[in-house]
Simulated assay, not measured.
Amino acid sequence: MSQNMSTADRVVRGVVGIWLLAMAVGAALDRRNVVAAIAGIAGAGLLSNSLTGHCGGNALLGIDTSGSEP
């Protein structure tokens, strides 16, 4: 898989992913299991995108924000 995300895109997804995981923990402690599951899955997906630099959705739509970065 080639990278198709810019550094700024990766940072934003990483921050939002961490926030969603924190929200999932809070929701789980409050026994809101559906919210916890949805936030946890979304947060894990965004963190995965951030760490690998590849977004499957961007690839399907032909979007490449990496520009001229190596």
Rank of each mutant, 00 (worst) to 15 (best):
53 G>A: 04
19 W>G: 14
38 I>H: 03
19 W>L: 15
8 A>I: 13
40 G>W: 02
56 G>Q: 08
44 A>V: 04
28 A>E: 00
46 L>M: 14
26 G>W: 10
12 V>F: 07
44 A>E: 05
40 G>S: 05
21 L>P: 02
44 A>N: 04
55 C>R: 00
19 W>R: 07
26 G>C: 11
35 V>Y: 06
12 V>E: 06
32 R>Y: 09
40 G>A: 11
14 G>F: 05
43 G>A: 03
58 N>K: 12
32 R>N: 15
58 N>C: 09
36 A>N: 06
20 L>N: 02
24 A>Q: 07
51 L>Y: 14
39 A>Q: 07
30 D>Y: 11
17 G>N: 02
22 A>L: 15
57 G>T: 12
36 A>V: 11
52 T>E: 00
9 D>A: 06
49 N>C: 05
27 A>P: 00
11 V>D: 07
41 I>H: 04
26 G>M: 14
27 A>E: 07
14 G>C: 01
9 D>Y: 01
26 G>T: 09
33 N>D: 14
21 L>V: 04
19 W>K: 04
56 G>I: 10
38 I>R: 00
8 A>M: 10
23 M>E: 08
36 A>P: 02
21 L>T: 00
35 V>T: 12
10 R>M: 11
32 R>W: 10
15 V>W: 00
36 A>S: 13
36 A>M: 06
57 G>H: 05
48 S>Q: 10
44 A>S: 13
41 I>W: 12
45 G>W: 09
8 A>V: 14
33 N>Q: 15
15 V>Y: 02
53 G>K: 00
46 L>F: 06
51 L>W: 13
52 T>C: 06
47 L>D: 02
18 I>L: 15
28 A>L: 11
38 I>W: 09
43 G>Q: 02
13 R>P: 02
49 N>F: 01
25 V>A: 14
